[in-house]
Design a protein around this nucleic acid. Structure first.
Lengths: 189, 189
DNA sequence: CAGGTTTCGTATCGATCACTATGGATAATT
DNA sequence: AATTATCCATAGTGATCGATACGAAACCTG
């Protein structure tokens, strides 16, 4: 998973995987069928172990603004974990691919689209609950948030620290009006 | 350039380039030395022909906010041009790379860093001119703007239309307080 | 302890990668 | 017009890709 995360699907060779896992080629193929299946296994593992913050943030019983704040701050932390490759596997895995790896690229794109859809759904819920400001469109703002997270992924890959990513997240959050509810512009936010 | 833009450095094979350019392998190597040099040529060509909007936006004699607006709107248009690969070559070219292509990945990273530095410089100028709101840090906000542009690049690659990217850009712009100058919250903007 | 079966690592498969040596066609010179 | 020189496309180079065939070692059964 770390190798795919770091180098992407195509640039990760079986030789690298073999050495990292300490397995012989037949063992790898017995266990994972082929490289593509292995990558998909890594994808689901990544989804389960590395980005739980997203589901947590979007399903927590908090205000919409707080949910988005947790989402962005969680991304800042998850994309810059020490000892882990920077950024998000869904972005780094195969942004550009050769024609024969198009299926993998499409699958990652589907993951990204699903993330955006989940954000949009949470915003729509906020709209229904009435704590999403009138001026913001759920789908449009979801695209913004998803875009910012993708951008954070690249910034992390370029070496941005967790603090810098938090500042970026906080800046993005300023695009969501406060609705003037119970929490004012207190201390740090 | 289009092939590298679409598939990235490593996933673009000499066979694809050969067919696209209608040249034989020796012709390619006579003209461009090797694949790496050819890619660098494509990079500079891309820089010259596709993203002039950035330099224009940052050097135009307009307010800082307007400069950033033009930058983001220019990106929205440039990243979704019909007939061109979506997104930005500097992002798609080699986000993740195999160890032997690390030099290419580093070069693209340097381009991205340079873009961010150019934004930071423009914001610092705005600070000096006094039209950058007190609350925003030039470096931090530059990282935000660069990150949003990178995110737009990925959204574009995922099929976002120019209108959707414009909405994203406009949303990001909301993170920059208006400073309450001559232009009010009129009509559209 | 012998025989048959299964497992597993090595060595290699064909395909493709970036890249280049060589033979044939063209052009220049006498 | 004959000969020499130059260019250039085809064919092939070693290396590496993902994926496997085969021989050896281990294990259970009789």
């Amino acid at each position: 998973m770390h190798l795919f995360w770091e180098h992407g699907y195509e640039a990760t060779s079986l030789a690298m995987l073999r050495e990292a896992m300490g397995l012989t080629p037949p063992q790898i193929y017995n266990a994972f069928t082929d490289k593509e299946t292995l990558f998909r296994k890594a994808l689901t593992r990544y989804h389960e172990t590395e980005i739980g913050f997203a589901l947590e943030a979007l399903s927590a019983p908090v205000s919409t603004r707080e949910a988005i704040r947790r989402l962005l701050m969680g991304a800042a932390e998850a994309y810059s974990r020490p000892g882990k490759p920077g950024g998000c596997l869904f972005v780094s895995g195969a942004l550009a691919a050769s024609p024969q790896a198009q299926a993998i690229a499409d699958e990652l794109k589907a993951y990204r689209k699903a993330s955006e859809a989940a954000i949009a759904q949470r915003l729509a819920k906020g709209r229904a609950m009435g704590d999403l400001p009138e001026g913001v469109c759920a789908e449009g703002f979801a695209k913004f948030v998803a875009g910012v997270m993708n951008g954070m992924s690249i910034q992390a890959r370029d070496g941005a620290s967790v603090e810098e990513l938090r500042v970026l997240a906080q800046t993005a959050l300023a695009a969501l009006p406060d609705e003037g509810q119970n929490q004012g512009a207190s201390s740090k936010e």
